[in-house]
Design a protein around this nucleic acid. Structure first.
Length: 493
RNA sequence: GGCGCCAUGCCCAAGUGGUUAAGGGGACGGUCUGCAAAACCGUUAUGCGGCGGUUCGAAUCCGCCUGGCGCCUCCA
C-alpha cells in the first residue's frame, strides 16, 4: 500500500493529499526564472524541491507532465514614478555594465538561459517535459488579452491594457490580500496611469514602440505583462485545470494571484487545485536576493570554491521547503561529506558489480524498510530531514560492508538505484564525463602519490609526510586504504 | 496597518498528546594506521524561548509575553 502524497496547499492553508484530475497523472507547473542574470542558489531551492515532487510522484508510479518556463520578456522592475514607462528587467540588464558584452537582449537571454540549464543539470534536476519561453507564446498571450477585453474584464488605456481587479470577485483568495484598501497600496509592476480604473489593476499588455523586445498587437507595438505568460503557457501544455502549481513564496502575491484572475476568467474553471510555495533561503538570517547582493551562485560554489554540485543539492534539501533555510558554508561542508560518502559507497558497489549501479533495475532489497520510510517521509509534505536521515542510514550500511558477492552487489545496486531515483544525491549518470575528465594536475598528483608510496615502502616517513603536506597545501587530501591511495580535492570555504 | 511563518543540545534539524526527545555537523574517547586522513564503535538535551492554563499525562493543545523571519515594493 503506497503512502498518500500530502503537501501543504497555500490556498486552503492546510496539508492535504495531492490529487490529480486524471488518476495517476500529475500535471505540474513550476514558475521558472527570469533570465536577466545568473540564478542564485536561492532560486534553485525552489527548483530542487519541485524536482523532489516530480521524483516522489514517479516513485509512486505516477506519470508526470512537468512544465517549467523561462521568462525572457516582460518582467518589470519596480514602478518608478520618474519613469512612467516602467523598465523591463531584460532591458535594464542589457544597459548595465554586464550587458555590454551582448549584441542584443536576445543574446543576453540566450546566455543566461544556457547558464541556467547548466546549473540545472549539475544539480541533477529532472528535465521538464516542456520548458516554454514567454517570447515564443506571443500569439496565445495576445489572444488571451483580446478574450479578456471582450469579457469586459480588461480595458485599454493610452499606455496599455489592464486587468480590472474589481471584475474578479475572488481576487486575493490565494494571498489573503482581500482588503480593497490594502490592495490600493499593493500596486506592482504597473505603470503610473491616471486612466486606470483601480490602482491595483495590473498590466496585460504594455504599449511601447521603443522597447527592445516588441510585438505587433491589436493595441499597437508592445509586449505582454509578466503574469500573462504563465497563465497562457500552463494552459497550452497542461490544460485549463492543473494539479499543482509551484514557485517561490514571493510569487504568492501578486504573480500567482494575477495568474488565477486571468486564467479563471478565461476558462471559467479552477486554475490549479494545489499551490506549493517554497520559502526563501537566507544568509546570516536575512533573505538571499539579487537585489540585496548577498547571494551565492552555483558557479561560485562549484567552480571557484570547489564544492560538489550535489553537496549544494543536499544542503538545499536539508531543511524542509516550508521553513526558511539559513544557508551556511558549514552546513554545505557537512553536505559535502555525505555526498562523498554516498558516492564512494556507490563506486565500490559498481566495482563489485562490474558496471555502474544505475544499470541495475530498482527493486526490492533487504533495506526496503529504510527506503520505504524515506519515501513515506517525503510523502508527508516533503519531510526531507527524515528522508535524508534514512538515506544516510542506508549509505552507512553499505560503507560498512567490506566486500560484496555478485548477488549482494546486485542487491546493493538496486537500493542505490532506488535512492538515486528518489533523491538524486549520488549522481554519476550525467556527471560521469566531467568527473572522469582528466585534469592537467591529475597526472602530477598521481606521480606524487606513487613517490609517497615508494617512500613509505622504504620507511622514509619524513619524505612521505612531506609529499602529503605538499599535496594538502594544494588542496588535495589523501585517503589510504588497503587497496591503495585515493585523493579528493578539498572545497575552499 | 493587512496576510502568514518560526523559536528543540555548541551548530543544522526530526518529532504536533503517552515507553529511554530521530538523524547529521562539531567536540571528546576508542579501533584501524608508521603517523594522519578516510571508515567504523562509543560519549555528548531529566529537557524542547518565558509565564500561565487544559489534561491522568504536553516539546506537542489554548492564552499571554519575549525574540526572529517572510509577503503586501524588483526578487524563487
Amino acid at each position: 500500500m503506497p503512502p498518500t502524497f500530502k503537501l501543504y496547499d497555500t490556498m486552503t492553508r492546510t496539508v492535504k493529499p495531492l490529487e490529480t484530475v486524471e488518476p495517476g497523472h500529475l500535471r505540474f507547473y513550476c514558475c521558472g526564472p527570469t533570465v536577466y542574470s545568473h540564478a542564485h542558489i536561492g532560486n534553485f531551492r525552489t527548483f530542487v524541491n519541485a524536482d523532489l515532487v516530480v521524483r516522489v510522484a514517479q516513485a509512486l508510479g505516477w506519470r508526470v507532465t512537468y512544465v517549467s518556463n523561462i521568462t525572457d520578456v516582460g518582467h518589470l522592475t519596480q514602478d518608478d514614478a520618474a519613469d512612467a514607462g516602467g523598465e523591463d528587467k531584460m532591458a535594464r540588464a542589457l544597459a548595465s555594465k554586464d550587458g555590454e558584452r551582448f549584441n542584443s537582449v536576445w543574446e543576453l537571454a540566450e546566455h543566461y538561459e544556457q547558464g541556467f540549464r547548466n546549473d540545472w543539470n549539475r544539480l541533477n534536476l529532472r528535465e521538464p517535459e516542456v520548458r516554454p519561453r514567454a517570447t515564443q507564446h506571443m500569439r496565445e498571450q495576445i489572444l488571451a488579452v483580446e478574450e479578456l477585453i471582450s469579457q469586459g474584464r480588461a480595458y485599454e488605456t493610452p499606455t496599455g491594457v489592464y486587468f480590472s481587479v474589481d471584475s474578479f470577485e475572488d481576487y486575493g483568495k490565494l494571498s489573503g490580500n482581500r482588503s480593497r484598501d490594502d490592495l490600493k497600496v499593493a500596486v506592482r509592476e504597473v505603470v503610473q496611469d491616471d486612466n486606470k480604473r483601480n490602482p491595483a489593476d495590473f498590466a496585460l499588455w504594455k504599449k511601447d514602440d521603443k522597447h527592445l523586445m516588441q510585438w505587433h498587437s491589436p493595441w499597437g507595438w508592445g509586449f505582454p505583462g509578466w503574469h500573462l505568460e504563465c497563465s497562457c503557457m500552463a494552459r497550452a501544455y497542461l490544460g485549463d485545470t492543473i494539479d499543482l502549481h509551484a514557485g517561490g513564496e514571493d510569487l504568492v502575491f501578486p504573480h500567482h494571484e494575477c495568474e488565477i484572475a486571468q486564467s479563471e476568467s478565461l476558462t471559467g474553471k479552477s486554475f490549479s487545485n494545489h499551490w506549493m510555495h517554497v520559502r526563501f533561503l537566507q544568509v546570516d538570517g536575512e533573505k538571499m536576493a539579487k537585489s540585496a547582493g548577498n547571494f551565492y551562485t552555483l558557479r561560485e560554489l562549484v567552480d571557484v570554491r570547489g564544492f560538489d554540485p550535489l553537496a549544494v543539492r543536499y544542503a538545499l534539501l536539508a531543511t524542509p521547503y516550508g521553513k526558511p533555510l539559513n544557508f551556511t558554508l558549514t552546513n554545505l561542508e557537512a553536505a559535502e561529506r555525505h555526498v562523498r560518502r554516498a558516492r564512494s559507497a556507490a563506486q565500490r558497489v559498481s566495482e563489485a558489480l562490474g558496471k555502474p549501479f544505475h544499470q541495475v533495475e530498482p527493486g526490492p532489497t533487504r533495506w526496503d524498510r529504510v527506503y520505504d520510510e524515506a519515501l513515506e517521509a517525503l510523502c508527508d509534505d516533503l519531510n526531507t530531514s527524515v528522508a535524508l536521515a534514512r538515506f544516510l542510514e542506508a549509505i552507512k550500511d553499505l560503507t560498512k560492508e567490506e566486500s560484496w558477492t555478485p548477488e549482494e552487489a546486485v542487491e546493493a545496486a538496486r537500493l542505490l538505484r532506488r535512492f538515486e531515483d528518489l533523491l538524486g544525491l549520488i549522481g554519476g549518470e550525467r556527471t560521469s564525463e566531467e568527473a572522469a575528465e582528466p585534469t592537467e594536475d591529475a597526472a602530477w598528483i598521481e606521480q606524487k602519490i606513487n613517490e609517497r608510496a615508494e617512500a613509505k615502502k622504504a620507511k622514509n616517513f619524513a619524505r612521505a609526510d612531506a609529499i602529503r603536506a605538499e599535496l594538502d597545501a594544494a588542496g588535495i587530501e589523501l585517503r589510504d586504504s588497503p587497496s591503495g591511495t585515493e585523493w579528493v580535492r578539498r572545497p575552499q570555504a
